[in-house]
Amino acid sequence: MSTLHTINKSPFDRNSLGSCLRVISDSDAILLIEDGIYAATSGTIFSDVVKAAVQSHSVYVLGPDLSARGMKEDGIVEGVNVVDYEGFVDLVTEYDKTNSWL
């Protein structure tokens, strides 16, 4: 049973991304939304964590949440894929279930 993990908290504020990565299965993917998108930006103290994550899992970030926060698509960690709301829906249907890390 594959799972899409959505993370909506900034990695600087809460450890939901870290906890998720600790218990994630091989067939799972991660979607960064809302304040979770800051994890995808390059040059932060969490960039290495995300760089490692994209080696083993598909990692996505929601474009509208990036632009709302003034973060550019070309300023994110390599290997992270930007999706729009339709892509969000596609991911939800593609995986067996969704785990929202609140």
């Binding site: 900034s10 800051y38 474009g63 509208p64 632009s67 926060r69 003034g70 973060m71 550019k72 709301y85």
Partner: peptide, 11 residues
């Protein structure tokens, strides 16, 4: 992050 330039919230 509150002060970043180019915030665009339409979407």
């Amino acid at each position: 992050y509150e002060l970043t330039r180019g915030q665009k919230t339409d979407a």
